[in-house]
Design a protein around this nucleic acid. Structure first.
Lengths: 171, 171
DNA sequence: CTCGCAATGTTAGTCACTAACGTGCGGGTG
DNA sequence: CACCCGCACGTTAGTGACTAACATTGCGAG
């Protein structure tokens, strides 16, 4: 179904594609579609952003302040990413960037990642409130950087991401 | 209408209150309600977060890095806030915190603030992409801090905010 | 072969939001 | 004072995402 959805979203745009059309294209009923995906958004954004990021954060030097620990953890975790995935990611982000109703969809969708990061920080001894703040902020900043990258096809993803992380870390 | 909406949201919860009920309570038709407020969310979140924050950011010392400039700008702008507004803010944030469908509503609603902050950073000579990243991240972090504050009635707002800003600034 | 379960379909509904169009009312102009 | 213009509001009907209740089908285990 995701494949059918992507094709339709690319061809007609996200907002102009009713879930009924996706269901029909995938050869299932609308009900079944919603049994597999919690929402229309999930058709685009369903892939679990690695909880392995959390490990990388937990393993950072103890003296690092929360923002920097998260930033450097993500930077480290990023090195194991398949370039094929990046290309796929880009087409999906393009769809997100062009759909008015998807503002904030990335952030909403990465609640799991935020939770994992928050826990990782807490086990490092960071206060719960500060942990949540730092995790949310970094993910939000990262999301906008990814969207910018998807819109302009100039830079390669690694460089864009690196600069965003520099900014977030206070650089 | 906002007053009627707030009362109903408090009594029954946001998700369980149809816009039809709000309209009826306010003595208008549903159509009229949507002519005054762009969405159901707007009934809760319609107040424009100060663009005067932008000034404070623009006025920060030139050598400060983007994250710190935003954080310190907000800290400075915060000093002029009426405690009555804070109390009102709290009840509204409580409603937001309890409504599942309002995840990310604060961030979405403060797009104007993010844009103002981004512009302020750009006039300071920060690259556009970095500016957007920093502004988004700080607002997102701040939003989660505000929500945490609204949920637990322990601290006073100033202290919570101060700690969140410390975290975001790399402290 | 059949029983049981799981995945899928059908139907009907709710809720946010919109488009098209009609109506009343107050205020300036003749 | 009569008229008309425009604006705010109402009504009706619809779209689109999502859900609940219930029927149905397919398929492996006994």
């Amino acid at each position: 179904m995701q494949r059918a959805a992507l094709e339709l979203f690319l061809a007609n745009g996200y907002d102009a594609t009713p879930t009924a059309a996706v269901a029909r294209a995938a050869g299932v009923s609308e009900m079944t579609l919603f049994r597999h995906f919690a929402s229309k958004e999930a058709l685009l954004l369903d892939d679990p952003y690695d909880p392995q990021i959390a490990e990388a954060v937990a393993g950072r030097p103890a003296e690092e302040r929360p923002m920097r620990a998260v930033v450097e953890g993500i930077r480290a975790a990023w090195r194991d990413v398949d370039p094929d995935d990046a290309a796929h990611l880009r087409t999906r982000l393009r769809i997100v960037a062009e759909a008015a109703t998807l503002r904030g969809a990335l952030e909403r969708n990465s609640e799991a990642t935020v939770a994992a990061l928050t826990d990782a920080l807490i086990t490092r001894g960071v206060a719960a409130s500060a942990a949540r703040v730092a995790a949310t902020a970094v993910i939000a900043g990262l999301s906008t950087a990814l969207l910018d990258w998807a819109r302009s096809d100039r830079d390669d993803l690694g460089a864009v991401l690196g600069r965003a992380l520099d900014t977030l870390g206070g650089g």
